[in-house]
Each structure stands twice: as C-alpha cells, then as structure tokens.
Design a binder for these strands. Structure first.
Length: 954
RNA sequence: AGGCGCGUAGCUCAGUUGGUUAGAGCGCUACCUUGACAUGGUAGAGGUCGUUGGUUCGACUCCAAUCGCGCCUACCA
C-alpha cells in the first residue's frame, strides 16, 4: 500500500469498475426490497452542497440495505425543470440577439434538447463523483417517452373525473416570462414603498372618501370602494356612488366586513378585482351590488397587457382606459397618475410604507395578479386521503415535527394552477376545435376517434405546457414503468423513504403523496426524512450573490485560490459585489481549498447530519475526517505489514465469515477489541436505522481511532514482535487484527465507499472471507456486520479497563512530572488484591510496552512504601519511587489537585446521601450506586491524602 | 399575526424515556522525528448547559415565563 492516503487515485477507478460490473443494479435475491427515488435534479444543473448532503444520506442508506441483503434499488433520473431550463436557453439566445419567438416553438424546443444533450450529463457525472450507487441502467428523465405517457394518462384520467378543469381567474402572472406561476413559485420580499391617500369625490357632490393604496395605478381598474359595515364614519354612505378620478366612471360604495379593517389606513379600500386577490374575493361576494351600477365587465376590469403595461382599448369597446396612459409601464403609469391626481387636488398625502412585494422566484419579476384562462387541479378531494395517510402513520415524517407543516398547508390547500405559458415541458393533452370545444385525450388520434372527428376537422392543441411539478408528482411510480404494470412497479412501490429538504415539502412531497394514493392506491413512500440546509461556516445561506458557495467537487478535487476567486466572481447578478467577494474569499481561503476526497466529504456530511438541523459547513471538520481516512489507511497498512504472508489462523478454514478451526489463542486485547467491535456494530445499526448518521459516524470514528488504533494496534505490537509469545498467540492476534479490520471496513463502507473498497480488496482474502484469486469480489455486496452476542466479553472489557487505567496512570505521572515518556520507570504496587497481582503478571507485556515500565514489584502490606508518585487503579496504588526522577513539590501539587477534585465530588455525594428524602424516594438502585461511588471516593481520598502527608513530611 | 426550531468549551456540534466527574472534533498549551500514521503520539487547560421561576429526593434533560437568533406560512388595502 502507498504510504499516504491519496483519494484521487482510488476513487474514480473504483466507481468505474463498480458501474461497469453492474453492482448498482438490484440483486434478484433478497426477501425484502428497499427503494429510494432520487429527487431528480435539474437536468442541466450542476451539483451544489445540498445535493452532496442529500445524496450522501441516500447512498449511505442504499449501501447499508444492499449489504443487508435487501433487494435494493436507488432510482436515478433528472428533471426537465421547465422554467429554469427554458430561461437558460433563452439567455443563450439573447447572446445571439434572438428571442424564442424568432425561432418558433419547434426550433426552440429542438435547441433545448440540444442543450440538454450537451450539459445533461454534467449533473449525473457529478453524482457519480459522490460515489452514488444509482441504478444507472434505468435512468429516467421527466420528459422521456415513458414518463410523458404517464403524464398524459394522469391528466386524462383526472380530467375525466372532473378533477382537472379550465377556468378564467386571477393567477400570479410573471410579466417578464409571460406565464402563470403557482403560489409556491412566488416569493415575497419586504420592500420600502409608499401609501398614497387619494380622494374619490362623491357623486352627490357632498365631499369625498379617502382611499389609501400602495398601488395607485390600479385605480383604472377599480369597481367599488369598500368600507366596514360597522364603521360609523361611513356606514350611512353604503350604496352611494363615487366619481372615480381620471376615468369619468362611477363606482359604488359597498360594505364588506371580512376584508375591510376600519383601523387600517382610512378604512376605505379601493376594490380592483382584476388585479388583487383579496379584491377579487370581495368582488365575488358583492357582484350584484357592483353590477347594479352597470359597469362594463361587471366591474372585473383588466387594465394591463401581458407585459404589465397599461392596455389599449382595442380589446373591448368600452373605452375604459384613458388614452393618456395607454402603453405606459405600470410604474410609469403610477408616477403619471399620482402627478395627475395631485394636480387635481385629489392626492391627500403620501406616506412611507413597508410592504411585501411578490416576485417570481425564477425571473425575479414582480408578480402581477392577472386574469387569464388556465388549467387547474381541484386539489381538495386528493388532499383528504393524503392528510389521512400521514395521520394514520402510513407516511411518517422524520423528524415528526414536519408533519405540522404538511398539515398546515394541506388543510388550506388551493386549487393548483398547472398550466404554464412556456414551451419547454409536457404539452397539455387538450385540443380545441374552431367553436372552442375542448377535447382531452392521450393523443390527437385518440381524441378524433373518441369523438368521431375525421381528419379534416380542424383541431388545434393547447399551446400551454404543464407545471414541472406535475410530472415530478408522478416520479415514484412513473419511473418504475407506470401506467404499465411492470415487475419493477410491483417490487419497489411503495418506496421506503424519501430523503429531501424541507423546502420542497409543498412543491413535491405533498403532491407525490396525493398522486400516489390516487393512481397507485398506496402512498409513494413510508417515510420522509427531512434534512436541513447546508449553510456556510457563519450560518449564512450559500448563494452566488453572497459569493459564499462551495462546490462539493472542489472539496473533493481541490481548487486553487485564483480559480476559486474567478468562479465566485463571474456571472454575478450585481457585478459590484465582486470586490467584496474576492476579498472575503482570499481571506477565508488564502491557500485555496485542498483535496479532501469524496470519502472525507461524505463522512463530514454524515457526521454533521443531526436530524432536522441546518448544518454549518465547517472546513475544519472535512479536514479532520480527511485525517481520519488517513488514519484508517495507515492502520490498514500496519495491519497488512503484519499479516500479509503470515499465519493468521485462517488457512484451512472454509472461506467466509466463519469460526476458526486452527489452534489459536486470543489475548485479553483480542477479546476486548472483538467485544468492542460487537457493540460498535450494534450502535451503528441502530443509528442508521433511526437516521442518526451523526451517531453512526461518531461510533465508527471512535471505535477506529480511540480503540482500534490507539489501543489495540499498540497492544498487538508486543505480542507480534516478541520471540517469547507463542505461535498460537501470534495467530490469534493476527487473525483478530485482520478480521476486525475487515469488519470495520464493511461497517464503514456505506458512509465511505471508496477507501473501504480499496483496502478491503487487500484485506478480505487474508481475512479469509473471499478466495485470494477472486476477481469480481466487492465489498459492496458483502454482508453488513451484525452484532455477535458470543463475542461480547464483559470480563475482557473489565480486565482491559484495568490495563488501561494502569497505563494511563503512569503516563499521567510522566506527563505532569516532565519525565520523558520513553524513559523506563520502576513501579511498585501497594494495596494490591489477588486479581491485581495476577493481572500485573499476566499483562506485564502490555504494561512494559505501553507505560514503559522497567520493573513491577508488589509490596506486601507490611512493607514500607518509599516516597513515590502515586496513581490509583481501583484500590491499588501504583507507585513510581521518587528517587531523582520525581520532583516532590510537583507531586504534592499534583496530589492536592486530585484530592481537591475528589473532595469536591464527595461533598456533593455526601449531601445527597444526607437527604432522607433521597434515601426514601429514589430507586434503590440509584441510592446503592451513589453509596458505592462515595465509598470508592473515600478510599481513594484516604489513599491520596496519606500519600500527600508522607511527601510533605520529607 | 400564526406555526416550527435553536441558544451546551474560543469555534462547529453530541448529550436517547430526569440519576456520569456534562462529552467529541477543530483550535489552544507543554512534551515527543518510538520501525502504521507529524494528515501523527502523550499529557493538559477550557463550560454556574441564554435568563428567571416552578415540578421533583434529584433538572442540560420536564413545565411556565422571559431575552436573543433563525426559518416557514399568511398577509392590511
């Protein structure tokens, strides 16, 4: 083995081998199946830390279950990501001074497919770099033929059931992208704005009402002014008419209790039903009153074009829009109208006002509520069983608090607007004839056949495409072949767990549950593991504009400072940030980022994955876990040096994880490490089963470093390098050495696949678990280690505790007394029990080697103890005679410190025992334990105090 | 406004139904080129567990209040 661990040389090689050999395909055996659907990343996207985290967790689960012998499928695939992808290609066109309409629909879509072909492999290549063991042979894409069939099938069936309908109503309109977007795609941000107080004169000439608004330009669409019916100031005016300024129109004063808060603003609300969701609701409640005044369109007046500029009068003959404003952008119109109102003396005042401005999360454009024809899914009937599925535990959220978020949304769910006025996506399977009749079907042919329309009858397909999340909602079954009844569907649906961030519970999780129950008759997954967000080391969200983004691939491969700066400062929305970002980057990464390898990165994600908590990504942790890899590497190197070509007590034994047949002897250390291993296996399994990857990682880390390396490897040395130890003992040690390592590798493999495979390939034949010349063996499909009760050895653990305490005691004295650790010291034992004496003889080899003891003499009770430095092992005193080694003052100080600690401790315990209530009410077990502890403390105290007195007398 | 979560060592975080001397990693101090590993070893310093009150024999852990921080949902024209 190479002297230093070098991840880059092993990782890529292994991944290719694994994939070539088809190790990621589900096995045909296995009683249970286990399946995870990847949350499909954007096909043209690139990997970010969230993916890194998410996929590490999934791959860990997948590898764990595969090793446990389950029939395990991790379904890969990508999402066409309608708007996001279309925007990217439109930007490219911009570079060529073209718009998508210049190309036309067909050519534009072709162009996107080209882009997909070009960059679509990027994300999947990066997923491979993470070691993700996805079943690539069955990779799917949300727009491939099969998935498109599923989409059409679902659309048609829902339509036939009346759960999909077409309707004209207010939607969130993006005036930049020219499409409707769903509520979820709208993000609100607080902005500084104004509140304009405008006077609307009463038609009877008796003064005016003052309405307060943040959007004066929508005045053109007003159809009424609403007041609260209980408002003494205005209630007598309800039913009267107002002169709507700038328009010459008359609008009524209406009373609406629900919407109008008398305390806010002036208590008078202008009602613009075509451009405000609340106003629309008011309008619906008061249609009659409003149309009494014979308003055009019943008062539902659209004033904007699709660009959110003031429309012309061409679309109707009512001449509602004053010529002056036609064609103005909404914000220009606002300025002009405010000025005009002021000139007319109708502007009472303008106040500063903070308001929430809705923006499209994709384009950033300010959303305009806009009246259009769209397709909707009637969600309530789908939501009901989906709520019940969570209530009755068919779907379990981890951590469970997320189900509140889910309920909250599901109980207030609105119909889902599924049509988008873009080109990239699944085209809506609906056709119109010239009379405007709608025909929905799986294809035009089906429609014609079903409705007896011959080929000459003109039909035109709906121009719109479906919301991307429509196809995503079908992902858990469409990827498995639905609507065909495939074997895969039978084997893997419902899937076992969905691993995702909380941000898409609404977008995706809830919709999958609804669609799964509707079309499969069962939930799509039994558990939803919701993980936190990956943030930067200061707890900030990683974002391009903040310049704090880390690329997982850079952490794996390394990146130089200049390249990192360049990466972070190019393509910024606001180029002014570049300098700040550059400074910040140079400050934080003066040397760039060094190469940590995939395994270290994965281990970091696992170790930081406490449930439900955001993780602050700390470079120190990655570095630490890279060191851990190095530790494991070097420990293995040491093991190999000691077992390769040597008798490990394996030969002649049947290959596999079997018991030894050869004569061998297991030392106390062997039995101890085997026992510790069993407990670690158990801890890791429990941790993974409960999604505590942090606990799993920690258990592995501690066992590997603090027990196997720090103690066991050291304890092996005197056995293996000593001519006086027996062959049977050496065999036992070698066997334990190599077998524990082999188990440890399997135990660790789900989290760190590469390093474990690389080492396992060398170790496994020696450990006798595979034939030496097996070509195709891989750790991937080896059994996951399970606890073996028979190897748990409390006696050995206690005995080793004695050995360790002995060694630590001496090291401590040496450390605090400035005695070179390598300097051999004579040791005397006082107050030694029979077992102490026996242990001192039996484990002499360990003591000499690890504590560098020179001689060990047992003092009889009648023998005088020389002045010494003291350590306690239980009740036994381990003494290092002072001679010239030890400084008396230092030893006195050391003892005083130790005594103070014990006294402090005893004090608290005594107080506890002095409390009769404690003796009475606490369980016997606890009281007993406290008593024992106190007794121990007292003995230790006495012992040390005597020692101190002795030293002070000198 | 409603909901959720967090506050433990300088930093990043564990602490499982209330009972340990409150732990780990990084960082810090001292010593050590010992034949797996200086990406290492040995020893050590460092915390009144945000604050206050309550329940209890006993609270980091349960309850209440309070302060600070974060997120989500809904929004007042």
């Amino acid at each position: 083995m190479e002297k230093t661990y070098n991840p880059s040389t092993i990782e890529q090689r292994w991944y290719e081998t694994w994939e070539e050999r088809g190790y990621f395909s589900p096995s045909n055996s296995g009683d249970k199946s286990y399946c995870i659907m990847i949350p499909p990343p954007n096909v043209t996207g690139s990997l970010h830390m969230g993916h890194g985290f998410n996929n590490t967790i999934m791959d860990t689960l997948i590898r764990y279950h595969r090793m446990k012998g389950d029939k395990t499928l991790w379904q890969p695939g990508t999402d066409h990501a309608g708007i996001a992808t279309q925007i990217v290609v439109e930007r490219q066109l911009e570079g060529e001074q073209k718009k998508r309409h210049d190309l036309g629909r067909e050519k534009f879509i072709e162009r996107i497919w080209e882009w997909k072909k070009e960059s679509g492999g990027n994300i999947t290549r990066q997923l491979r770099r993470l070691g993700s063991s996805l079943d690539w042979q069955h990779e799917r894409f949300t727009m491939d033929d099969g998935l498109s069939d599923a989409v059409k099938e679902v659309f048609v069936r829902l339509y036939e059931e009346g759960l999909i309908y077409r309707g004209k109503r207010l939607v969130n309109w993006d005036p930049k992208l020219h499409t409707a977007v769903s509520d979820l795609e709208v993000i609100s941000a607080e902005k500084n704005g104004h509140m304009w107080h405008m006077r609307y004169p009463l038609s009877n000439g008796q003064g005016h009402l003052v309405v307060a608004t943040t959007r004066p330009e929508t005045l053109l669409g007003d159809c009424a002014v609403a007041v609260n019916p209980s408002d003494e100031r205005y209630k007598h005016m309800v039913g009267e008419l107002l002169e709507l300024p700038l328009t010459g129109r008359r609008i009524p004063i209406i009373a609406d209790e629900e919407h109008v808060d008398p305390e806010f603003g002036t208590g008078c609300v202008k009602i613009t039903p075509a451009h405000d969701f609340n106003d629309y609701a008011v309008w619906q409640r008061h249609r009659d009153e409003i149309s009494i005044s014979e308003q055009a369109h019943g008062g539902l007046i659209n004033i904007f074009t699709i660009d959110a500029a003031i429309r012309s009068n061409e679309e109707d003959e009512t001449n509602l829009i004053p010529e002056k404003y036609i064609g103005m952008d909404r914000y220009d119109a606002r300025k002009q109208m405010v000025a005009d109102l002021e000139a007319l003396g109708l502007l009472e005042k303008v106040e500063d006002h903070k308001l929430m401005v809705p923006q499209c999360e994709r384009s950033g454009a300010v959303i305009e509520p806009f009246l259009t024809d769209q397709w909707y899914i009637k969600v309530a009937p789908l939501a009901k069983p989906a709520i019940e599925a969570v209530e009755n535990g068919q779907v379990r959220f981890v951590p469970s608090s997320w189900k509140n978020t889910y309920y909250e949304w599901m109980h207030n769910i609105q119909d889902w607007c599924i049509s988008r006025q873009i080109w990239w996506g699944h085209r809506i399977p609906a056709w119109y004839d010239e009379k405007g009749n709608i025909y929905v079907g799986r294809s035009e042919t089906e429609v014609r056949n079903q409705h007896n329309l011959d080929d000459n009858y003109p039909l035109r397909q709906d121009e719109d495409v479906l919301d991307t999340w429509f196809s995503s909602a079908l992902w858990p079954f469409s990827t498995l072949g639905w609507p065909e009844q495939t074997e895969r569907l039978k084997d893997y649906y419902p899937t076992d767990v969905l691993v995702t961030g909380f941000d898409i519970i609404f977008f995706w999780v809830a919709r999958m549950i609804m669609m799964g129950i509707k079309f499969m008759g069962d939930v799509p997954f039994k558990e939803v593991y919701v993980h936190g967000l990956v943030r930067d080391s200061h707890g900030n969200k990683m974002s391009k504009s903040k310049g704090n983004v880390l690329d997982p691939i850079d952490l794996i491969d390394s990146i130089g400072l200049e390249a990192l700066v360049a990466k972070r400062t190019t393509g910024l929305m606001n180029p002014k940030d570049a300098q700040k970002i550059e400074d910040q980057t140079r400050n934080e990464f003066p040397e760039g980022i060094s190469s940590f390898g995939t395994d270290a990165l994965r281990f970091t994600f696992a170790a930081l994955a406490a449930t439900g908590r955001d993780i602050k990504f700390d470079m120190g942790r990655v570095e630490g876990y890279r060191n851990f890899c190095n530790k494991l590497w070097n420990a293995s190197r040491y093991v190999m040096m000691n077992v390769e070509g040597k008798d490990c007590g394996i030969s002649g034994v049947k290959i596999g994880y079997s018991e030894p047949a050869v004569e061998l002897e297991r030392s106390i250390a062997d039995r101890w490490i085997l026992s510790r291993l069993q407990k670690t296996k158990q801890a890791v399994a429990i941790a993974i089963d409960s999604y505590r990857f942090d606990h799993a990682a920690q258990a592995i880390y501690e066992f590997t470093w603090n027990e196997y390396c720090d103690w066991y490897l050291e304890l092996c040395k005197p056995v293996l390098n000593n001519n006086n130890t027996t062959d049977a003992a050496k065999r036992g040690t070698r066997r334990t050495l190599v077998r524990v390592l082999e188990s440890l590798l399997r135990l660790t493999h789900p989290i760190m696949p590469f390093i474990t495979e690389e080492i396992w390939q060398r170790v496994a034949p020696i450990a006798g678990v595979i034939e030496a010349d097996t070509q195709e063996a891989t750790i991937i499909n080896q059994p996951y280690p399970t606890q073996r009760q028979s190897l748990i050895d409390e006696k050995a653990e206690n005995e080793m505790a004695w050995v360790m305490q002995f060694i630590l005691g001496i090291r401590k004295i040496k450390g605090e007394m400035n005695i070179p650790p390598g300097k051999p010291v004579p040791v005397l034992l006082a107050n030694a029990s029979e077992s102490d004496k026996l242990f001192a003889i039996q484990h002499r080899l360990y003591l000499d080697f690890l504590a560098r003891t020179d001689s060990i003499l047992v003092l009889n009770s009648n023998e005088q103890e020389p002045e010494s430095a003291t350590a306690l092992v239980g009740e036994m005193k381990v003494l290092i005679p002072l001679a010239d080694l030890i400084n008396k003052e230092a030893e006195a100080k050391r003892l005083e410190k130790e005594i103070a600690r014990l006294q402090n401790d005893s004090g608290a315990t005594e107080k506890k025992l002095a409390n009769p209530n404690f003796i009475d009410k606490a369980p016997q077990m606890v009281v007993q334990k406290v008593r024992e502890k106190l007794a121990e403390n007292h003995k230790a105290l006495e012992s040390l105090q005597a020692q101190l007195a002795k030293i002070q007398q000198l």
